[in-house]
Write a protein that binds this DNA or RNA. Sequence first.
DNA 1: CCAAAAGTGTTTCCAATACACCCATGC
DNA 2: GCATGGGTGTATTGGAAACACTTTTGG
Lengths: 228, 228
Amino acid sequence: MKKSNTRIANKLKTPAVAVDALIFSVIKGKLKVLLIKIIGGPYKNKWALPGGLVGLKESLEDAASRVLSEKAGVNEIYLEQLATFGELNRDVRERSVSVAYFALVSSESFFPKTTEYYADIAWHDVGRLPEMAFDHKKIIEYGRERLINKLAYSNVAYALLPKKFVLTELQNIYEAVLGKKLDKRNFRKKVQEIKLVKETGETRQIGASRPAKLYVFSERRPRIIDIL
Amino acid sequence: MKKSNTRIANKLKTPAVAVDALIFSVIKGKLKVLLIKIIGGPYKNKWALPGGLVGLKESLEDAASRVLSEKAGVNEIYLEQLATFGELNRDVRERSVSVAYFALVSSESFFPKTTEYYADIAWHDVGRLPEMAFDHKKIIEYGRERLINKLAYSNVAYALLPKKFVLTELQNIYEAVLGKKLDKRNFRKKVQEIKLVKETGETRQIGASRPAKLYVFSERRPRIIDIL
DNA sequence: CCAAAAGTGTTTCCAATACACCCATGC
DNA sequence: GCATGGGTGTATTGGAAACACTTTTGG
């Protein structure tokens, strides 16, 4: 709220507004986050979340989508706001607040490419983060907790998988995020019981073993339902 | 994130940053929110959440505490960030983003007073909101959902009650927020079982009925635990 | 016939729910 | 003695968790 008009006339200075994108994926059974390596300035060679300032003519969510697309080459993914970080010393260069967004992608859906803006871009294991710029380590930790919670009471796992998948892959997503093994029978019973997924009729075979049934999510949009 | 230094040199303009305070309390069995009535400008005589711009030398949380104290006379209460709202048209006067904070107070702990800055200040029933400025109706609805969830998996109810209280009052808090009746025996069994509260040994009597035991919360700081 | 991953049911246990009467007090 | 709110226990049910073997395929 900014209530009296004098406030506006005064043009009281407020912090700069940025968005940061926390892009999660599960790759080879590990929870990963996409990071870029900063080229210059006081944070040179430090890793950071892809981000950018918010323009006057774009909403926060639009800014987050833009950053995702421009800086990481990611489109059409699950995106939601995580939280806003605004400690005084979070950026040594200028006072800023950052609205962190939380994104989920299927590892099959894209491969990061380095751009001219960054020294590097890569998936990092959330359990073993490199030295990071700003307060980004804190943001990632916060996001991870959110992800753990969301898996338990929503169907967002769909965003971490390709359209068609086998139940073992779905279970691997859960195990990677939660960091613990789940019982195969109970897991399968549950996801079918609550109609989280449905059979496609197709199967897929990898190597010399019994072909697995391919499933799709019953609904590929956020939905609240108890899973764990 | 704002990565390359040229960004900073350019001083790219970003939206103004404000904080809004969503102050909830349960009064006479109803969930209420504290609103102020705007004195002038395009939103004259509309109701809104207490709020204000964020200074360059204060963190977001400090700004929220300041607003709470200056604009609503509230101190020492439960405060957490809710979400940040940044649609293009949320404020007709200038482009702004608002970081909404979520506060809980005991209705005994303070009584709102009108200040020179506002035409009025009052508790409003969350179920019957007046016409409101900005996107504040949306913020309140969002906050209410957060509150419902938090009551279910945390002990934040302590912030809605005075230090000592009787179990019926605690149950009333839950019923007012959830909007449904709970079973008295099951409710009491549960809150004692999980050690949410403990007896003080004192009692309190109102009118001509059996005196009720006074309880306190085992812990008056946020704690995660399953209640419902 | 062996290796590799897929698939499948039953039992046990605990927590959530439903439910109705007696108690202490003031007037 | 009656009106008012305070306080208490048990039986039932449903979901969570534990648990091991058979199936299908390729080589």
